[in-house]
Every structure is written in structure tokens, then in C-alpha cells.
Design a protein around this nucleic acid. Structure first.
Lengths: 349, 349
DNA sequence: TGGTAGCACTCAACCACATAGAGTGCTAGA
DNA sequence: TCTAGCACTCTATGTGGTTGAGTGCTACCA
């Protein structure tokens, strides 16, 4: 555990704030002039040397100023930084932006992602709710071939999921309708995670053993819910081009690495899944080599949305390590809360 | 109309092939050695000077070689280039790639886009089928609140579309089921473009005037089909990072412009719509300033897919002007044909 | 003992200048 | 009509010098 004196903290904060603003290494003179503590550059230099020894600052070359390391940022974020409060008008703006034209969930989340990217001038990211955490609302079997059935599954939150299944014998739409309505009745309001279980249970019941319709309907439902893609996650990343405006991406090689990472969504999904499972409010992950390969020098501010006890997905902002955390953190926090509200409303019915 | 001698054509072709390969301006000496016509560099220089005067070649500075202009490329593509035939094994590879795991349409097209990007090492692009060009298969009204109805609309090709409508009075799922089955009967197999018309017609019929259920069902269907998003297009662009590997994007400013363009999909959609409407097989658009703003120096190779008389969407490849057209054109062509086949099969039922 | 002033030192960034090499245009000759 | 040769142009690359920001260290002060 690193213990910093009040002055150390002030200097660290000053370096970081200035660095976040300018993106350039910060010299001792600048800090001496800017910061509240009235000490000379030479003194600052001593403190900075100490902070460098602790691994919180870094000097690109001997005659340059300092920039914060990931470790330095970590400490700043965890114990020094004060998140700015959102102004009322800012909150209103976010609300208006997200509330307009309440179309389907997909639209809402896509727009959220776009909004986050624009408002924070970084990349906005939203992890799509997994079906498995919502509740069953409706299923529909539709004949799409002599022995082919298209299945549409709808969750309480308004998520729509689509699969195809092959059936062993020819089947009419009329029969399928009967299956649908039976299964709908049976599974109404169940958490999707326990649907499989319920079906299996029911299949063992007396009714299923003797009633051909029931047993077939159950078999079809079983196949439909067996689909592995039920558990698939999807992720929206918007505003990647905002990242390019940061001077840290003057380097083309870096850009390329980053875009590659964004295209291979699975890695991002895995990362967001961590936040989802932690589900402990806002979370900030700094891209040191070990944690997010491919996102070195990047940083992720994210928060789960949904009910506290039942998070649906994750939303947040991806940007360079040099981001204005004190501004973006409350924006992400507020957005997550607001989206949760909207979705909860839908879920009531 | 520009008339070129045989030799002019050969030189133009040689410049372009070499330029496509290396990305560097091509000098007279290189061509003299490489090309089949055995003439000295000096002669080539004369020809090149002529071609430059015609606006087909361009010289970045006096002591550099030539690069083709968009106009030069146009002529090359239209009348000089011979598309390579696809090897059997290449065709098999494409087929295997696209046929595996026949999930829903979305998945298929997304994979197609990804495949095109990987195989051509450029960005792959797919314009999603518009609902309006397919035929009606199934509609489902689902209660999502006391006065709110979620509408799921499914087309023959397996496209799923979702809307919400507000209803003026409270309504039960049971009623909604009746509406669904009535509307399904009524609209079965109609082209979606004429569905609105059909509904209006039916609303004027005697039945609708006296039967409350019918009139309400029709009203609901009308509202559902009124949704402007029916006509929305969506577009998938994959493999943007491939573009970065081209040396022409060493320039960061250019990159940024390009990414911005890709994020504002509406422009791309408008562009692809042109191809869709022309529906005349493969089409190559070169990004001279006037045609595609934001895509300067880029080029689009695209082809509609679907039936000839009823194209569903467009797929293709976006890359720099310097692309291996002779290789990519047949790939796009074959892919479009193959995807059309797959979708047509689904449409039969 | 902690803070400060001063000074020598380091290093990137910038500029001016020189050089090499690729490629051209032009002219004279086959 | 084509080609060989030559002078010319222009970029890319490299070199050396200068500038300025910023440091570390030491000596001094309260």
C-alpha cells in the first residue's frame, strides 16, 4: 500500500489534470504556477522524482516533463478524484436525448451508445441484454418449410430472438398455433434461465405422456430453447472515429491495433461480462498490458444497467487512458440509471 | 469518346497492374522491362505523356513515375481488364464458408459481409433487404402494456421487424390473438409493398363496416404497417481495419474522414440504393469527388442479390481506388449469385 | 531539515543545407 | 517512328547546428 502525503497527492492530481487537458508531458514550472500550493518548481521536481520512484509518474526522456502511469491514474481515480456533479440542465439533456421516440429496445440501446460517444467524445459501448436474464413473454412457431419451423421468442423487456429448427415430420401452421398457445400458457413470466428446467419437468408429467399435442409442443419448445445463441451477447460500439481525434492516435500502427480489437467483438464482450458479473456500479478498467490485450493504453468506464439484483447488460465509454474521468464517470452513471428506469417500466407489464 | 491504340492500352494496363501491386508511381523503365511489348523506356515515356494529356494518368511531381487517375481506372475496368475466372476450389471455399450453420438471415448476411472483407482484404459491405420488397408471411400482436401492443412482422425471407403501437383502449391478449389470426389470413403472401393498399380496401368492405372485430383488427394492422421504419435500410460494414493496412492510409487525416463516413451509414445506404435500383449486375463506382463525398479516393464494387426481377439488397466490397479489380469482381459476382440462391430457397416455402 | 535559487546538462524538435537517385523531357540520330 | 543520351527536376534522406523546455544537483537560507 502506497501512502502519499497531502502534497504528493496535490502534485499527482495537478500533473494528471494538466495532462488530461493538454496531452503533453507536464513540467515542474507549469505545476508550480498552476496549482494552489505555492511552492517553487524545484520543490515540485523533488516530489515528482519521488512519485516517479513509486511508479506513479513516467518521464518519456530526461529533458521532458512527466506523464502519469496507469498506476498513477488508478490512485488518482480511486482516492483523489472528485467526480463533478451533473448540472440539472445536463441531466435534462441526457433524459431528452434518450427518451425521444421510444421505439424498440434495440433502437434505444443503439441510440444510447451513440449518445455516449457523442457526449463524451469517445467511443460509446453497450452490451446487449442477454436473453437468459429476462423473463419469458411469448413464443411463436411459424412454418417456414414442410419440415422447418421458425421460432420467435420474445422476452418481457421486449427482446426478440429468432431461431430455426428442423422438424422430423411435415407439419401445418394450424398445429403450430396450438403448440404456441400451449407453450405460451405454460411458460408465461418464467425467468428464461429456468425455462429449460420447467419444460423438462413438464415432459415427465402425466399429461405429456398421454397427450400427443402436449408432448410434441414440449419437444418443439425444448429444441427452440436449446439453441446456444440464446446466451449470445451482442455489443454496440459507436463513435470509433472520435477516438481518432485524440492526438495519441497520430500513430497509425496503434490505430490499426485498436480497430482490430473493436472488430473482434468477442474480446470486448468478455471484458464487459466481467463488469456485468461484478455488478457493483460504476467500474473503471485501465488498459495495462495484462488486463485487456489489444486495448493497451485504453481505458473503459462502465456500469451495469437493469435492476440492481438483476443486471441486464453493461454500458460505458471506451477512450484513451487520458480521459476526463471526473466528467465522464457521472455521465455514465446517470445514463445507466436512466436506462434502467426505462427498461424497468417496460418490464412491469 | 477516347480512342486508344493497342499500344496505349497496353501501357495503361501495365501502369495500372503495376500500381495496383506496389502502390508506388510507376516509371517508364519498369514498364519497358515488365510489359510484353518490347520498346524502350523513352518510347513508353512518349505514350505516357499522351495518356497524361488525356487525363488517364497523373504525375505527382516532375521527377516521379505515373499513377492512374480515376478516369484511367474507369477505362481500364470497362474495356481493358479481363476478370480472372474463379478456380473451382475458390468457388468451393466460398460456398462452404457461407453455407455453414444456416441460422437466420441476419446471421447469414453478417457473415457474408465478414467473409467478403476477409477474402478480399478490404471492407465488406452488405445492404440489408428492405422489408418492402419481400412478401408478407406472418404478423403477431403481443400485449406489452394495458394499452400498448408490440407488433412482430415476419416476411417470407425470414426477416423480422418489430414495432410498438399505442392503442386507444385497454385490450387483452386473447383479443389480440384474434386480430392476428384474422390479419394473417387476409394478408398471406401479399407483397409487403401492397399490404397497405389491401388493408385500406378491406376497411371499406361491408364486412369491416359491420364486424367490430374485423374493423379493429384492420385498424391495428394499418397502424402497424404505417410505421416509417418499414422502409428503413440497414447496412453492415465489416473489416474496416483491413483498409488501414493499405499504405494509402498512412495519412491519419484521411483515415479519420473515412471512418466518419462509415459511421454515418445513411450516406452509404443512399449509395448502395443506387446500385439496388440499377440492379444491372455488378457495378463499380470510383470515388471521384462528385459521386461519393467522404469516399474520395475510394471505390465500391457491388452487386445486387435476390431475384433478378426483385433484388433484395446489395453486397460488395469497399476499398481504395487501388484494388485488384480483376480478382475481386468475380468474387463479388459469385457471392451475390450464391446468396441469391440461398434466399430464393427460403422464399419457396 | 525542508524549501529555494542557480547552473550545467540533456534531449527532442526544428531548420538549413548537401547529396543521391529515380525519373523525366528533349534533341539528335538510326 | 523509335531509340540513345544527356541535362534537368524534384523528393527523400542524412548531417550538423541551434533553440528551448525541462531536468538533476548543489549550495544556500530560514
Amino acid at each position: 500500500m502506497i501512502i502519499l502525503t497531502q502534497r504528493d497527492q496535490s502534485v499527482l492530481e495537478a500533473v494528471i489534470t494538466d495532462y488530461i487537458e493538454t496531452g503533453e508531458p507536464v513540467g515542474s514550472r507549469t505545476i508550480s504556477k498552476r496549482s494552489a500550493l505555492n511552492v517553487s518548481p524545484a520543490t515540485i521536481r523533488n516530489v515528482m522524482a519521488d512519485l516517479e520512484e513509486l511508479g506513479l509518474l513516467h518521464q518519456p526522456h530526461t529533458s521532458a516533463g512527466r506523464i502519469p502511469t496507469a498506476r498513477g491514474l488508478r490512485i488518482y481515480i480511486d482516492s483523489i478524484m472528485q467526480s463533478k456533479q451533473l448540472e440539472r440542465q445536463e441531466r435534462d439533456l441526457i433524459r431528452d436525448e434518450l427518451r425521444k421516440r421510444p421505439r424498440d429496445v434495440k433502437d434505444l440501446l443503439q441510440r444510447t451508445s451513440r449518445f455516449l460517444s457523442q457526449y463524451c467524445r469517445q467511443a460509446g459501448v453497450v452490451l446487449w441484454p442477454k436473453l437468459t436474464v429476462t423473463r419469458f413473454k411469448h413464443i411463436e412457431f411459424i412454418r417456414s418449410g414442410p419440415q422447418q419451423v421458425m421460432v420467435i421468442l420474445i422476452s418481457k423487456d421486449g427482446l426478440v430472438h429468432q431461431t430455426n429448427i428442423e422438424w422430423t415430420e411435415e407439419i401445418t401452421q394450424r398445429e403450430l398455433d396450438k403448440y404456441s398457445s400451449y407453450v405460451n400458457e405454460l411458460l408465461q413470466d418464467l425467468p428464461i434461465s429456468s425455462v429449460k428446467e420447467r419444460i423438462r419437468e413438464e415432459m415427465r408429467s402425466e399429461k405429456a405422456l398421454f397427450d400427443k399435442l402436449v408432448s410434441r409442443a414440449l419437444e418443439m419448445a425444448r429444441q427452440a430453447m436449446h439453441d446456444s445463441s440464446l446466451d449470445d451477447s451482442e455489443v454496440y460500439i459507436e463513435g470509433q472515429s472520435n477516438l481518432l481525434d485524440n492526438p495519441e492516435f497520430a500513430d497509425v500502427a496503434r490505430m490499426r491495433r485498436l480497430l482490430h480489437t473493436f472488430e473482434d467483438k468477442s474480446r470486448i464482450i468478455r471484458l464487459l461480462d466481467v463488469t456485468l458479473k461484478a455488478s457493483a456500479g460504476i467500474q473503471i478498467i485501465l488498459g495495462t498490458e495484462d488486463e485487456l490485450q489489444g486495448l493497451q493504453e485504453m481505458s473503459l468506464i462502465s456500469s451495469p444497467y437493469g435492476r440492481g439484483d438483476r443486471p441486464l447488460g453493461v454500458l460505458g465509454v471506451i477512450g484513451p487512458l487520458r480521459m476526463d474521468y471526473s466528467r465522464i464517470v457521472p455521465v455514465v452513471e446517470f445514463t445507466a440509471r436512466f436506462i434502467s428506469q426505462i427498461l424497468e417500466l417496460a418490464d412491469e407489464n
